[in-house]
């Protein structure tokens, strides 16, 4: 009896260290953050000295026009950059999925932007966008055009951060799509060629549908990441002009350090976390559905 019980408990015993690490490293900080979001807490106080104010931080957020604006900017930013990056990244992968000499060098070059520290990317772009000495405006004026107020005008500033993000993150989608493309079954593509499919038809009817599972995961990963982008925009515009580029993570950062409202910052982080959880959950469901479908297909094949 007791041996049987010990046997049953053994797996949990082995899991215990991992569980402990998870509890300390993951659940404790998250619980701390959730608790903090119910407090009126400024950084000069210890957490124990802060007043408990229930849901007031959250109600305040929803009535705060600046927060709503920054939520909107974040959503707009994520949708725009991820859409453009997907098109560019997948397009590039389709173009470069062939045997060119020096392909591996090219590939490494393409993913360089991803490897640069975000602060450096921000600084680099900020100087390139500089109104007078930046490369863009110098080139424009050399060619006889009017200079563009890259970071000085709300709409242009938004476009500028989108461009910088696309430059940095398209390679991520490119490299994942390329990997997907190269693992496609050659037989399917061969068969379509024999059936007389044109290049476009191959892409639309064979390659893209087969790549879809990888593309969906890539899309979600990028979407989650784009919701949390901070450093590049912080360095380039610090959220300005006005609130035109103040994405949520900048708002959280300012709320904690500039406004000294740790409780409110925690509440914002929780809302962001909820949004990201929904996205992650969507990804999980999709994976599950895919697995089920594959299982069903296998079952059908086996029966046949």
């Amino acid at each position: 009896m007791s041996i049987a019980r010990a046997n049953r408990l053994t797996p949990y015993l082995f899991l215990a260290p991992a569980g402990a690490v998870l509890a300390v490293a993951l659940f404790y900080p998250i619980c701390y953050m959730i608790y903090a979001s119910f407090l009126d807490w400024n950084p000069s106080q210890r957490i124990g000295e802060a007043d408990f104010i229930g849901l007031r931080n959250y109600t305040k957020l929803f009535s705060d026009a600046a927060f709503r604006e920054s939520m909107w900017v974040t959503i707009k930013f994520s949708i725009v950059v991820v859409t453009i990056e997907m098109f560019l990244g997948v397009g590039l992968a389709l173009l470069l999925d062939r045997n060119i000499r020096g392909m591996s060098v090219l590939r490494t070059l393409f993913i360089l932007p991803m490897m640069i520290a975000p602060i450096v990317v921000g600084l680099m772009w900020r100087y390139m966008y500089h109104p007078t000495v930046g490369i863009f405006n110098r080139t424009l004026t050399d060619w006889g055009f009017d200079p563009i107020p890259w970071l000085a005008d709300g709409d242009w500033a938004f476009a500028s951060i989108v461009i910088a993000d696309i430059w940095q993150w398209t390679p991520f989608i490119f490299i994942l799509s390329l990997a997907a493309l190269q693992s496609l079954p050659a037989s399917a593509i061969e068969a379509s060629r024999i059936d007389g499919a044109s290049g476009w038809q191959q892409i639309i009817y064979i390659k893209l549908p087969l790549m879809l599972p990888v593309l969906i995961v890539t899309l979600l990963l990028r979407l989650i990441d784009s919701f949390k982008v901070l450093e590049v925009i912080l360095v380039m515009t610090n959220g300005g002009p006005g609130l035109s580029t103040e994405i949520l993570s900048i708002r959280i950062n300012r709320t904690a350090s500039e406004f000294r409202e740790l409780g409110e910052a925690a509440a914002m982080s929780n809302l962001l976390l909820i949004v990201l959880l929904i996205l992650t959950f969507a990804m999980f469901i999709y994976n599950k559905a895919q697995e089920l479908r594959a299982q069903r297909m296998r079952a059908v094949e086996e029966e046949a």
């Binding site: 300005g240 006005g242 103040e246 500039e258």
Partner: peptide
């Protein structure tokens, strides 16, 4: 005053809108 951080930031972003967006 302790609330200055919030008010200062609000003045700053609003002034920026006056300067760049013609508010």
């Amino acid at each position: 005053i302790p609330t200055w951080g919030t008010i200062n930031a609000d003045i700053g972003t609003t002034m920026s809108q006056v300067l760049t967006e013609g508010l």
